[in-house]
Design a protein around this nucleic acid. Structure first.
Lengths: 332, 332
DNA sequence: CGTCGGAATGTGAACAGTCACAAAAATTGT
DNA sequence: ACAATTTTTGTGACTGTTCACATTCCGACG
């Protein structure tokens, strides 16, 4: 009696007195196995504590039931867990490729070698907006991009950031503001750029001349720094549109240090509606995105692409909505 | 000429005019291959665009170079990305098992079947504090637990939360506070319980009678709710120790709504030092933990356990530190 | 009563590598 | 120059599973 580490399909077959192929059929829930045999096999599986060797299965089937999120530090960390959860519910695993942008091609090579079934991508340098080019790079592995450019012709799930920025800016204009500065996110980020354009367009549509804008980096400290720069520049404004809520936190601190009151002197609108924003003093008026939903939709779309070859290719665009709190007030 | 999908090691061998074993040696950077042959093989690899099939390698070697984080929703989401990054730097992948507590045993079965090399665990119901029991459940896969109980005799990386709570409470006492309430985290969470004990012990050490405590859930809304409950109970206090910063946000809102001023009427100390805390008004005095460091140390320890069989088993305890900001002030 | 159809089961050959050992080639010492 | 040694290369077997196809079994029907 040899004591092997792990029982194999053949051990189970011997135990149950059937062929290994029959065991394979049973564990794969295949048709054409008599209930009687099925029972015997399961009993043997139970008795030996047999678990199929996933790697052998993957080697044979070329399906790993694994999705990979390829993303740089910058961005969507907060959706990771929810994506993993959605994947798990459909029987998939989710692995994170935490890469620098220049490792993108290698990461995709590696994904192919590991039989990754699908990819969640974020926009990466250098930006690639061509579907065929992306298909080539991903070696034909189905993918969905989050945070893609509006209008991209490949599978993607995004928020309409320009629209969100329009809501925010119009809200300020409706309150009588005309001098509306912006602290934008990094403009080579599509989301940041779209918000920036929405702000610009809304000003223009309302006959307001161009207003000052400083580029931040989406962090609290970056917002703080940018607002100080803006104040130092001597620009006059009664309201600020912040590229995201984190920067709004820093902006608010910078204003307070200069003796400027929110919303008495300056109104602020943010973007994202992170949980803390409702509890700032005053509460932050902001544009809400549901990141959890975004991650969930992206994974579900990806799974459909994997499991139904004829799933159509589209861009799903979600509409953000304005949440009005205490940080905005009619201009004096 | 058959046009196979993917070139295999044998195709490369034929192309380079060597045996498949030699190709295997070259791609594994093994010794005893002449520079000349090595060159020929690499050229063939290049020419055919050969990439080793990871699944075949794993099947044979029983090493997947993959770590798995097994965790429920509750907890350490924010360290995911940093752990993935640390793993990546050492050539490992990281997969997330986003499970409910009752799926714990299945998750570990599955990990074994996928030849997961190491596990990052968080405490899960039912709590298991026995090393041998954990080894049994994990099928001998090396693991490191984060957020383990202080004094646990298995590989773990934690902060000393009781110590952090002592720093926070002593700080309030030094400011003259004696009526120091607590809004704790969920007490069956080890971290929350340790903070709670640190608070209690410090009061006792200073000859202060037991103070009111309400159990929250670590969320902003939970903190808001708990503080309202505390105020409704009619308890008298001049300071609050919050189980974490998120709850401190909710607590501050609740106090403000009741017309109580921070720090004028009530001082608050939080725990974690999330980035937003510095930008609350007033800035939140809190106990700082470096989550990034925690994740990084856990992954590094895990990799050592995997790669050196004789890595000692220990609990690494990090010391949090108090960050004093505007939310605490001497008692009136 | 032979044979036909369909369900149930079994067999050989992949899948793409690595390991252990055998064989050949190159290097060294005497 | 020849045996001893070392380095380099090759061969057979094996990892655990699924696929494609072959075979057996069993009742029903002409």
């Amino acid at each position: 009696m040899k004591s092997k580490q792990r029982p194999t399909i053949r051990d189970v077959a011997r135990e149950a007195g059937v062929s290994y192929q029959t065991v394979s059929r049973v564990i794969n829930d295949s048709d054409h196995v008599s209930p009687h045999t099925r029972g015997r096999v399961w009993k043997a599986v139970e008795k030996l504590g047999y678990r199929p060797n996933r790697m052998a299965q993957i080697l044979q089937t070329e399906r790993s039931l694994t999705l990979e999120v390829v993303m740089p530090y910058f961005g969507f960390n907060r959706v990771l867990y929810d994506m993993a959860r959605t994947a798990h519910q459909r029987g998939y695993n989710l692995v994170i490729a935490a890469i620098d942008s220049d490792e993108f091609p290698q990461a995709l090579e590696s994904a192919e070698a590991r039989f990754i079934d699908g990819l969640i991508l974020t926009p990466l340098f250098p930006f690639i907006d061509d579907y065929d080019e992306l298909v080539r790079l991903t070696h034909g592995i189905p993918f969905v991009q989050i945070g893609a450019k509006l209008g991209a012709h490949f599978p993607s799930v995004i928020y309409d950031h320009a629209q969100g920025a329009r809501l925010a800016t119009q809200h300020l204009i409706d309150l009588g503001h005309r001098a509306i500065a912006e602290i934008s996110g990094p403009l080579l980020n599509y989301d940041a750029a779209a918000r920036h354009e929405g702000w610009q367009a809304t000003l223009k549509d309302n006959g307001i001349p161009p207003q000052p804008c400083i580029e931040g980096d989406f962090t609290i400290e970056g917002g703080y720094q940018a607002m100080n720069d803006l104040l130092d520049s001597g620009a006059a404004f009664t309201a600020v549109f912040a590229g995201n809520d984190s920067m709004a936190f820093g902006i608010q601190t910078a204003l307070r240090e200069r003796g400027l009151h929110v919303p008495g002197d300056i109104s602020i609108v943010g973007f994202d509606d992170i949980p803390e924003s409702a509890h700032l003093v005053p509460g932050l008026t902001t544009v809400r995105q549901d990141f959890q939903l975004l991650g969930q939709l992206a994974v579900e779309y990806l799974l459909n692409l994997i499991e139904n070859r004829d799933t159509p290719i589209y861009q799903r665009v979600l509409s953000p909505r304005l949440v009005i709190r205490g940080s905005t007030r009619p201009v004096r």
